[in-house]
């Protein structure tokens, strides 16, 4: 259900937002009408996860509960409900391979096994150096460019085994590979070139 961390880790005793994030959080909270501040729980949890390096320590949830006047269990319910929140440390690059039907039909099995063999881990595991975590994801909404995977905030689309390994290699070298389609097409333009609207439509 959730990704296993690379090894033993400790829950930090305390957590507080950086001054910048604190100001941001206050701005987010102020968007909601008085008495409805609890609505800010998801953006705040997300910001805390980013600050903590990709996962949500309990201390961060406690801090947010305090900020929004909620009981701990209510924050915990939200954090456990959404799969985007990681309750244990994950690798620096969280690789989420979409395996839902459209991607699967277009070869997500190949993408997933390429990930497994390149990283040397199974699904829901983290590499020993803490660089990569691998998980399967449900449809991420890029079916038109299937198969695809999401690494941290970026989508990598139109993958095959070679393209997948290339992206992972680049990340392992510390580079930032270009996101989006890996087959060279622009966004979701037709894969083999345009088949319709080849000539300007005459004036009518």
């Amino acid at each position: 259900m959730s990704v296993k961390p690379a090894g033993a880790y400790e829950q930090p005793k305390t957590f507080s937002f950086t001054a910048e994030n604190q100001a941001w959080a206050e701005k987010v909270i102020s968007k909601y009408p008085k008495g409805r501040q609890q609505s800010a729980v998801i953006p705040l949890l997300d910001q805390a996860q980013r600050q903590a390096g990709g996962w949500l320590p309990r201390a961060a949830m406690a801090m947010i509960a305090e900020m929004l006047g909620m009981q701990m269990i209510r924050v915990y319910e939200v954090a456990t409900f959404y799969t985007m929140f990681n309750l244990e440390p994950v690798g620096r690059h969280l690789v989420q391979v979409c395996t839902t039907t459209p991607c699967w039909l277009r070869g997500s099995d190949e993408v997933l096994s390429a990930c497994k063999s390149r990283l040397g881990i199974d699904v829901d595991q983290t590499t020993a150096d803490g660089m990569f975590s691998l998980m399967e994801a449900e449809c991420l909404g890029a079916c038109v460019n299937a198969p695809m995977m999401q690494i941290n905030d970026d989508f990598f689309e139109d993958l095959d085994a070679a393209a997948t390994v290339k992206v992972l290699d680049a990340l392992a070298r510390g580079e930032t590979p270009p996101n989006g389609s890996q087959s060279g097409r622009q966004n979701s333009a037709p894969a083999g070139g345009r088949l319709t609207l080849l000539e300007p439509v005459g004036e009518s």
């Binding site: 259900m1 009981q71 269990i73 209510r74 915990y76 319910e77 456990t80 409900f81």
Partner: peptide, 10 residues
Amino acid sequence: GTEEIGAVFR
């Protein structure tokens, strides 16, 4: 009025 029990995960 204590909000102690909750439903976690989904």
